[in-house]
Design a protein around this nucleic acid. Structure first.
Lengths: 167, 167
DNA sequence: GCATATATGTCAACATGACTGACATAAAAT
DNA sequence: ATTTTATGTCAGTCATGTTGACATATATGC
């Protein structure tokens, strides 16, 4: 079944390395979302809810537009999950102070609790992998993935202030 | 909007590092699938088709059961995309030689062409990130992600033969 | 102040890719 | 001969994305 993965000449190996890097990302992402998915299912939530909880938790008082810009989904898609989270009191909306059209989003204590629970699972997984791989490897992980995401995301999320690559 | 990300004490920083690692994976995965998604759309295919093409390409003459075990989806889900790929002649099925119940899957020349096109986009992205980050970083990337995927996937995909961690 | 632009929300219809459950067929294994 | 396995199929459901159209309140520009 597998006569393709052996690694004979350096050119072949190089392509094989790339392919392995690709699969690694696929499997890591999948395994990485499995635990949170199970937790979310208890609440009748899905992965979309997780993303909203995550980014609202990390950016308290974020506006709906900013959230949309991060998630890159339509407002109709967002509104379904966000509406649910607001109705079930995981997130509250405050009217913007300067611009009263805005709905500033924030986690409620319940929301914070769920966020902790979800991220704990993922932080543990990362912490284990980090500890196993060593600090140098972590730096490599960061560098490679940082090079793979769009500049837009790099700037928005890892900020002009926090060291993005050059340290 | 962002009063949470500054990094003051080491304990806080550590958690922030973990959170950054998590987001990095999310954004990388998303940006990473964007290009192939656009290509697939030309053919009326989706991400599910890509995965099938990828794993059949990498494991010529794979059985349906093996493919299901890798993808971890139901046969009903697989059958829709696989059926389409077979009907549109990107994949062929051969009857198994030892076990005639099996349908061994293989890419057709057309399938190979599409696979090349899809993976080229991703290989380029990886190659760029790799080149940018350096060989050491690549090793780190590999180590960290390898530590994050399930043993099952590690063994199946990165094989008992190919060096999985210890080199 | 009036016209326009912006931030947000909502209704409706649709696509993709997952799921469960039930059932069918051919071939292998006991 | 019976049971198990590999595969396929029908039917219904769910989560999450999409497009397009329209509504409301507030801000902004002239």
């Amino acid at each position: 079944m597998t006569d393709i993965k052996s690694g004979i000449n350096p050119l072949f190996l190089r392509e094989e390395d790339l392919r392995q890097g690709i699969e690694l990302l696929y499997f890591a992402y999948r395994d990485f979302t499995a635990e949170p998915d199970a937790i979310l299912a208890e609440y009748g939530f899905g992965r979309a809810h997780h993303r909203v909880i995550h980014f609202v938790g990390r950016n308290p008082r974020i506006t709906v537009s900013e959230l949309l810009a991060i998630l890159k989904i339509t407002k109709q898609s967002l509104s379904r999950v966000l509406g649910q989270l607001v109705r079930e009191e995981f997130i509250v909306q405050h009217e913007g102070t300067q611009d009263r059209r805005q709905r500033l989003l924030e986690l409620t204590p319940t929301g914070i609790a769920l966020e902790r629970r979800l991220s704990e699972s993922q932080r543990r997984r990362f912490a284990d992998a980090y500890r196993h791989a060593g600090a140098e490897a972590v730096e490599g992980y960061r560098k490679v993935l940082m090079g793979m995401i769009s500049e837009e995301d790099r700037e928005r999320v890892f900020g002009p202030k926090s060291g993005d690559d050059g340290d």
